[in-house]
Design a protein around this nucleic acid. Structure first.
Lengths: 194, 194, 194, 194
DNA sequence: AATGAATGAGTTTTCATTCAT
DNA sequence: GATGAATGAAAACTCATTCAT
């Protein structure tokens, strides 16, 4: 019994289903049928809503990027000092999405971005904004060159921890990861003082 | 024109072809035909030698892991001081394989490892050995706890830089990456001194 | 032009097509494409409904077994005396299915049962029920031992005639075959009287 | 190290291997490689000796037919009375070949004969000779019509018992089977006396 | 005589996508 | 709006067969 206003709910359900399906079956093996089954709709409907598999997966990616962006922006809005802003960015990266299913999807999108220009463009936007945010905050704490280096290290460290936690047997702890990165930033900033 | 003793050559050629094909098409889209075509043989032969697509891809992964391991071991053998050994590990990680095609394959294997137990096991072995090597070297430079933390940061940083370079437009520079990591390790060790 | 409720029709059509295809090409050479073509559908649909070649062939076997069972049960229901019941079983075995295409399929399933446990199990059920039915009827006409022997002879004779008719140039005559078996049973029962 | 005079041995080994392979894998699944592997030679050699898979399987069939013929002829040569000759034929049919692997092959050939004219022709020769032998012996014991019927029953019974034993869990007992048939023949002959 | 190397042709199987209802 | 029905296209995989050595 189709009701009006179902579309947004269906779309969300399909995106969530896609994330779970990617986690369980892997990006390469995930099928429209599998995703639709998890979302409780027919494959034909999933197709109808998103226009195709590629576009459903891109929408999923866009959703994850937006969610992560929101997480960070919410924290940045509350931050008062440059150091707070650095912490906000780091903590935002280890917030809501730091779960196995989401990590799998992120990884899958990184892979996708190797060959798919659209995926690559989306990731670039996120990457650039992350580094730019970091750079601005760090720029107030150290020299331009040091800030650039520390921003790069921080971003790489965040990505690296995501990957490594994805292989860990136990569920990842966001706080541990964030603290590790924050300490590394402090270590790097201290060098500048010397 | 069959000559005897071709098997090892074909296997190597197929593994190389697989790495290139994964880079160009992505793990999910790569086909046996594509790989075989690049290696200059029929798809049937690729099957014959490896038993199937999954096994060819696992063999490729094993090859990359072994190659990386050799790279590191060769440098470790020449290292004299603990600090040299840390550098050896870091530089080994950014040596021969730090090329776009190989990076793509590594990423793909990380993704594969999310769902494929065999891939996961292979990756675990590499991960554990890397951390264990780092830990032993760092243990002689600082306390047990600090060594553990620095080892984790170093490993994550290496992985993170690999990923980030995979998205960069220009070809990655191994020396830059290695220096970045080495400086981060020094920064972290310095904290211990304080 | 898809209409709803097609599945049962397609399944029946595919099973019939399988029987014809097995007759024409032989169990070993029969292909899904061939079966699907005869049923007027795509190979993909045959897969969709049955899950694979093996399962389509098993479904075909199950269909033939069920049909034969029905044939016999219908006749048994009308039989009044033990001798009628023996005749019912014999005649049921030479009824509707005693056609070249079906005979080929039966033979093929006997072969299949040599190596395929599932096919073997299915055939066992039929075999046991046939002998049990015969045994019960004969038990009222002679001693336990003689009944067992006659049941075995009857069952073997039925199978043997099926096979032999499958090689005959002309189309087999069900009545001839049934009468032959019935006379053999009478001959054997008469021995008991002596 | 090829030696002279190997060919006949290889051929026999391949035919034996074919029988075993058909038993284990089924006629439909049997491959040249499988047969060659069992015979300890390369698939290419099996091909070389027999000219192809079909011909190897036909040669196997010819071998089984000849062996069965020899078995019967040897017994017929010693038989003195018509009744002895009937027994000779029956017992010959349940002699050396009454083993699971051979039974599987026979069944497979019956199936093959449904669609393959060459196999059909070979089987016809055997069938006709069996019935002709039986007919001649029976002709001296009863009327022409009764002899014809009894010959048919006997032949069908033999085939039927072969099939049924092929499905039995325990290894078949040749003597039991032969006695069953002989008693059935006696029963049928007795009817003529009445 | 014998085989390792290699493949073409053909099979099953999978799946995104389409479409009539 | 939603779906069951259906398929084309492409994939993995198999295997008899060929051939240079």
């Amino acid at each position: 019994m189709p009701r009006i206003g179902m579309e947004p709910m269906r779309r969300k359900a399909l995106i969530s289903a896609a994330i779970e399906a990617i986690h369980d079956r892997g990006m390469g093996q995930v099928t429209m049928s599998e995703i639709a089954r998890r979302a409780g709709v027919s494959p034909a409907l999933a197709h109808h809503y998103f226009g195709g598999k590629d576009q459903l997966l891109l929408a999923t990616m866009r959703h994850l990027l937006a969610e992560l962006g929101d997480e960070i922006q919410a924290r940045l809005a509350k931050a008062r000092t440059p150091r707070d802003r650095v912490s906000a960015i780091i903590q935002g990266n280890f917030a809501g999405q730091f779960r196995p299913a989401v990590i799998s999807s992120w990884l899958a999108f990184y892979v996708q971005a190797q060959t798919d220009p659209q995926a690559r463009r989306l990731l670039h936007v996120y990457t650039r904004r992350l580094e730019s945010n970091l750079l601005h905050a760090l720029r107030e704490l150290t020299s331009r060159d040091r800030a650039a280096e520390i921003a790069e290290v921080t971003a790489a460290l965040i990505d690296g921890l995501w990957i490594r936690r994805s292989l860990a047997e136990v569920d990842p702890d966001p706080d541990d990861a964030a603290k590790l990165v924050e300490r590394a930033v402090l270590d790097a900033l201290r060098r500048g003082d010397a």
